[in-house]
């Protein structure tokens, strides 16, 4: 009788240990899932290079934002909204700056989506950036809201 109870307890503890093992495996799996969903990867060489290029260009773009010649568009780009404030001789350069910035931005949005394994997220990434560029723009800069240009 005693031996039988002993055997039963042994079997039960054995089963319990196994069960706990599965729970641990399951929890680990879910932890990985949560981590994968809550993160956006932006630390890649391509993104770093784009960031640096945009940062250098910003020194030249900042006066154009301040004067209102260039504004932050609703689509995540920058736009030459009022060239009249730019001296004729510098309009070509302003145009080139805007084009180069928009090319970098497009590459940045695409690269972020790609780096996270979801190229189809590019439009979502662009929309997120469009909102944040505008939210973080300095007072006095021009931004596009509901299709109209307004001074922040």
């Amino acid at each position: 009788m005693n031996a039988m109870t002993n055997a039963m307890t042994n079997a039960m503890t054995n089963a319990m240990t196994k069960f706990r093992g599965w729970i641990a495996v399951l929890l680990l799996g879910f932890a990985g899932l949560v981590l994968a969903q809550g993160n956006i990867e932006i630390d890649t060489p391509a993104i770093a290079a784009l960031k640096q290029s945009m940062q250098q260009r910003h020194a030249k773009l900042a006066p154009l934002y301040a004067s209102g010649a260039v504004g932050l568009a609703a689509d995540g780009n920058v736009a030459l909204r009022d060239a009249s404030g730019v001296p004729l001789a510098q309009r070509g350069q302003a145009n080139a700056l805007v084009a180069a910035e928009n090319a970098d931005r497009a590459a940045l949005y695409r690269e972020i989506a790609r780096a996270n394994g979801h190229p189809e997220w590019e439009a979502d990434v662009r929309a997120t950036f469009a909102r944040r560029w505008i939210d973080r723009a300095q007072p006095g800069w021009w931004i596009q809201r509901d299709g109209n240009w307004v001074r922040k």
Binding site: N39, I42, D124, V125, T128, R132
Partner: peptide, 10 residues
């Protein structure tokens, strides 16, 4: 998470 990442880049 994307918004946070955007802010860091901006």
């Amino acid at each position: 998470a994307a918004e946070k990442a955007a802010d860091r880049i901006i």
